[in-house]
Amino acid sequence: MRKISGFIAVSILLLASVCCNGQDTMRYPINAMKGIRVGVDLSKLALPLLSRHERMGFEITVDKHVKGNFFATAEAGWLQTDLSRETYHYMSSGFYGKIGIDYNLLKSRRPGSNDILYGGLRYGMSVFSHKGEDITVPGYYWENATAQDIPQTVMSSGWIEFLLGIKAEVIKNFYIGMTFRGKFRIAKPKDNYSTPYFIPGYGSGSAGFALGLNYYLSYNIRF
């Protein structure tokens, strides 16, 4: 409930902060973007620093102006987790992909601008595996003991994302952008005994709803 409330609050803040700027300024339709825009998620590259080197990954994104205010988009990435604790060593890794569509919500304040504030929808899917070793389980009434390893298990998961984002052209053909996402899991990973720690591209393996934040650097390849 806290995560859903936080998602709604930040979405309102983002919308209000951009919509309220320059209310009296003339608006122009966005310039139809030629070619495709390819980007990399900088927040994934910062994961080792943010997660005490327990997670690392990368994500690339591609989008193309389709018609009017619509952009078709695809994202793909890879994520690895390595948790080393006193009582276990847990590892997981996998790939994910997302496809979706974005809709530009605003007209630009200057002609020929490609800056957009958009709402988007994604379908995401991940295939990943996990395993565990060097495990000690509590015996409570009995003595603590070394347990069997968790065998490598391949799982998959699917989810739907609703997002708000911005993309701004800071230098010709170079864009910085940010998205804030709410993700709803629709396919739960199947494992009889384990809850995966992290689903690549989605978030916590035990949560039915997850939040996400991305920070992109993109380049428009014109053709």
Partner: peptide, 16 residues
């Protein structure tokens, strides 16, 4: 028959 499962990063593993 014994099986080991991962609960969470805070709780660790359990023997099922």
């Amino acid at each position: 028959t014994r099986h080991t499962g991962f609960i969470s990063s805070e709780c660790g593993c359990a023997g099922f």
